[in-house]
């Protein structure tokens, strides 16, 4: 309990299910992790592993119906935000938590100038008016390195490039000075050189504001580049959590290890990539055991019977596998 002071977010045993006519889809099934103040925490996994639903759950924006958070706790600065009312949650969103989405093309409303959209966000949370509102908006645009911000302020979204739009969204997200920023694949739609610009910007924003960052991505390279700690998700569960160094130097879950071997690398010569045969199980199946067992090369009888508990194999490095 001693390090509670530095703890920003604590997700405990989160379960988000989707109730469809084809059965219950357990998109997030018992996910736990912690994020410290000012830390960048990565969640990495393949499509459909539940990483985006985890993000939406933290925002309490899971489409209902068909989705519903059926269990767990999301403790933000000591308060379980699953217990508060919708009205209170609306105040938490934007003020304490903010989110950046993948597609810069659809995240901005095309019929308002970026200045108006930025002011709208500031107005809701800070109650500024008139000139000071405008000054704050331009200041924010400058902070996200938009050149000649006073002119750009009057631009429409379609007049900006993808990279600039994403930076404007970044400005909107931090306008309310949130404690936690969730970035869901924010650079996937951007080109490599623009991606680097944006990632660097995020880092600078974080240094300036001390915001905690949850970075959701499918790209291990971004995890290596951006995060201090990360979790690997597979089929609705976290299979391994640890410092980024732990994950890269000592990937311990067979899934993490296999993924690392199947990554093409620019820096070194790889004769042949290892590939993981098969594909992830459908999430509406009722699987008792480890979800990776069917594709795992070291799976034993026990693995198919029950799900392994999380084991701490070294300081802060947790693995859910029967091997440990």
């Amino acid at each position: 309990m001693g390090d509670n002071m530095s703890e920003l977010l604590n997700v405990k045993n989160l379960k988000t299910y989707f109730f469809t006519k084809y059965g219950t889809v357990k998109a997030v099934d018992g996910v736990s992790f912690k994020v410290d103040k000012g830390e960048t925490f990565g969640i990495v996994g393949e499509s459909g592993c539940g990483k985006s639903i985890t993000a939406l759950s933290i925002m309490r924006l899971v489409p209902d119906p068909p989705g519903r958070i059926v269990g767990g706790e999301i403790v933000l600065e000591g308060e379980d935000i699953l217990k508060i009312s919708d009205n209170e949650m609306r105040k938490v969103r934007g003020k304490k938590i903010s989110m950046i989405l993948q597609d810069p093309m659809t995240s901005l409303n095309p019929v308002f100038t970026i200045g108006i959209q930025l002011e709208e966000a500031i107005k809701i949370h800070q109650g500024l008016k008139g000139r000071s509102l405008r000054e704050r908006a331009i200041e924010l645009l400058e902070m996200v390195q938009i050149s000649s911000a006073a002119v750009r302020y009057k631009n429409w979204p379609h007049q900006l490039s993808g990279g600039m739009r994403q930076r404007v969204i970044g400005a909107i997200s931090v306008s309310s000075e949130p404690r936690l920023l969730i970035a869901d694949e924010p650079t996937t739609a951007l080109d490599a050189t623009i991606q680097v610009q944006f990632l660097r910007l995020l880092r600078e924003l974080q240094e300036k504001t001390g915001v905690g960052l949850v970075f959701i991505t499918h790209d291990f390279g971004i995890i290596a580049r951006m995060c201090q700690r990360a979790a690997v998700m597979y089929a609705g569960r976290i299979v391994e959590t640890g410092s980024v160094r732990d994950l890269f130097d000592n990937p311990s879950h067979p899934y993490t290890a296999a993924l690392m071997r199947s990554l093409p690398k620019l820096e070194e010569k790889v004769e042949r990539l290892a590939s993981i045969e098969g594909q992830p199980p459908p999430l509406n199946d009722d699987i008792q055991g480890c979800r990776f067992a069917e594709r795992c090369t070291v799976a034993e009888h026990q693995c198919r019977l029950s799900y392994p508990d999380e084991t701490e194999i070294s300081d802060g490095h947790f693995v859910s596998c029967w091997k440990f």
């Binding site: 490599a192 680097v196 660097r200 291990f220 390279g221 290596a224 160094r245 890269f248 620019l266």
Partner: peptide, 25 residues
């Protein structure tokens, strides 16, 4: 050079100072 330096590293030890291109395409 810029394009390759913008590629994400495959290990945290391999992070290099990237050449950040200014401006837009």
């Amino acid at each position: 050079k810029a394009l390759f330096s913008a590629a994400m590293p495959s290990h945290p030890d391999l992070i290099k100072e990237e050449v950040v291109l200014t401006g837009e395409v």
